[in-house]
Simulated assay, not measured.
Amino acid sequence: MDELCNFSGKQKALLKSDVIAVFDKFYEQIDRKERINKFVKAELGSISPKTKKRAREFISKYEI
């Protein structure tokens, strides 16, 4: 996503928050969760407080 999108850093961080929300809707249906887990964990250090919060909630919810 970082290489494909020309948004500013803050806009990318907020977009990633939305991506995590989509992952949350379909997480139980996904067989290979490793890439999702890695993506979400990386966002614990996001510049966006909203994205950090959503990542923390996701990790807590799915105990990853």
Results as ranks from 00 to 15, higher is better:
Lys50Asp: 06
Lys52Ile: 11
Leu14Met: 11
Glu34Gln: 08
Gln11Cys: 07
Glu3Arg: 14
Ala55Tyr: 09
Ile30Tyr: 10
Tyr62Thr: 13
Asp2Cys: 07
Asp18Leu: 04
Ser46Cys: 04
Lys41His: 08
Ile20Gly: 05
Phe7Trp: 09
Asp2Glu: 13
Glu43Met: 03
Lys50Asn: 13
Lys10Gly: 03
Ile30Thr: 01
Arg54Pro: 00
Ile30Met: 14
Asp2Ser: 11
Asp31Leu: 02
Thr51Trp: 04
Ser60Pro: 02
Asp31Gly: 06
Lys38His: 10
Arg56Phe: 02
Asn6Phe: 11
Ser17Gly: 15
Arg54Asp: 05
Gln11Ser: 12
Lys10Asn: 11
Arg56Asn: 08
Lys53Asn: 13
Ala13Cys: 03
Phe58Lys: 04
Ser17Asp: 03
Lys38Ile: 10
Met1Trp: 01
Ser46Glu: 01
Arg54His: 12
Lys41Cys: 00
Arg35Ser: 15
Asn6Leu: 00
Leu4His: 12
Tyr62His: 09
Cys5His: 11
Lys38Gln: 10
Arg35Tyr: 14
Lys12Arg: 15
Ser17Trp: 05
Ala42Trp: 04
Phe7Ile: 10
Lys25Ser: 07
Ser8Phe: 08
Lys25Val: 00
Ala21Cys: 09
Asp31Ile: 00
Phe23Ser: 05
Thr51Val: 02
Arg56Glu: 15
Phe26Met: 13
